[in-house]
Simulated scan of single mutants.
Amino acid sequence: MSGRPADPVLAAALKRLQEGMPAVLATIAATRGSTPRVPGTRMLVDATGIVGSVGGGQLEFEIIASARDLLASNASATRCQHFILGPDLRQCCGGALDIVLERLMPESLPWLKQVLDWEFEGAFWEGRLAVGDPSSARRLHRLEGAPSEPGTARLVKSVDGAELVEMSGRPWPQLYLFGAGHVGRALVRLLGDLPFHVTWCDGREDIFPAEIPMNTRCDAAADIDALIKGAPADAHFLIMTHSHALDFDLVAAVLAKERFGSLGLIGSDTKKARFLQRLRADGVAPGDLARLQCPVGIPGIKSKVPAAIAIAVAAELLVLTQAREQEGAVTGVQSVG
């Protein structure tokens, strides 16, 4: 899949509008000092609930209250509020941030549909909305390439007022998950709230659950060889099918690809030893064999409960992707999902 996963907050905003439910989009536009979240972070607020988070605690409580005040007022003008994370909010971060609150109306549907279409295509965009204007006045510009700071926002101030400027394209790692059993299902549920683009493969078409997270695409009829060969060079692979024979074929196919982010296999030390023996006999180089992680997941979690295994695997993925991001920051290389 060449596109990026839908931003869950913007996707939820589109769904609310399509269902005729009023909501307010809260976006962190600027920060100074220590703050719980970064510029570009969004939260959707309606009369009964929220989607996403801009930091939790008393700060988020105040932002939700302000958003619901905006809903109750029926005002269409976008607002900007400044918060200092000090004693008044019972938070000791010491920083400050600006939050832009915009009431979403039926007239906001075109821009929401457009940015989500661009995300699906893998295109990048810039959005601009003047504080005081309605959400529908947002100006969009499709970018030719990835922005220098993807997935961020800033508040541009001038003598004429202030403007929220947003950049799309926060890079999300691509994960190819093979197997839709108990652990696979638990892992997909967990990854639904994490920044991963998941392609979930299992030849048993009727095994996928009815509810699939927005960042996940199911594929029951994939050409596995073509899928693996066509995956990005930094893609992560997790193999946990119902068949050891299929597991082995998938491991061999990923190792033959040579360039990939990581390769994890569910199983025991005994399973790993048997796989390595066969792969060694097939001529796989020792350096490639060393890249096979089995058992998969961060060490120290011994539970065999599917949800516990999923947590261990997700934690390991986060460690791997964080290390890659830090490496990219040092070298100046940026990965684009």
Rank of each mutant, 00 (worst) to 15 (best):
D249K: 08
L227G: 08
G203M: 01
A256I: 00
D219M: 14
C218P: 09
L255P: 00
F208S: 06
P209A: 13
A252D: 02
E258S: 05
A235F: 00
D219I: 12
A273S: 05
E211W: 10
H236T: 03
T241V: 07
R278P: 00
S262C: 10
D234R: 12
L255E: 01
D206R: 10
G230M: 09
V251I: 15
D219Y: 11
G264K: 06
H242I: 13
I228A: 09
L265W: 04
A210K: 11
L276T: 13
F275T: 01
L263G: 01
G264Q: 11
A231F: 05
C218G: 07
A281R: 15
A226E: 11
G264I: 10
H236F: 14
A253Y: 08
A281F: 11
F208T: 08
P209T: 08
F237R: 00
M214R: 13
V251Y: 07
K272W: 01
D234Q: 13
I266N: 01
D219T: 04
S262R: 02
A222N: 13
A231Q: 04
A235S: 05
R280P: 03
I239H: 07
A235M: 01
L250M: 14
K272N: 07
D225P: 03
P213A: 02
I207K: 05
A231H: 10
H242R: 14
L250F: 08
K229R: 10
H244K: 08
T270P: 00
A222R: 04
K257A: 09
L265D: 10
C201M: 15
A235L: 06
T199I: 05
F208L: 15
T241K: 02
T199E: 10
T216G: 01
A221C: 13
D269M: 12
D225W: 03
C218S: 05
K257D: 14
L279E: 01
H244A: 08
P209K: 14
G283M: 08
D223T: 02
A245H: 08
A252F: 05
K229F: 02
F248Y: 13
L263I: 04
L246Y: 07
Q277D: 11
K271R: 15
M214S: 08
L250A: 04
A210C: 05
L246V: 11
P209V: 04
C218E: 07
L276Q: 02
D249F: 05
A220D: 03
A273E: 04
G261P: 04
K272P: 01
D225I: 05
S268E: 07
K271M: 01
P213M: 06
D247L: 08
D223E: 14
A233H: 07
A221L: 11
T216H: 01
T241Q: 11
A231L: 12
Q277P: 02
G261T: 00
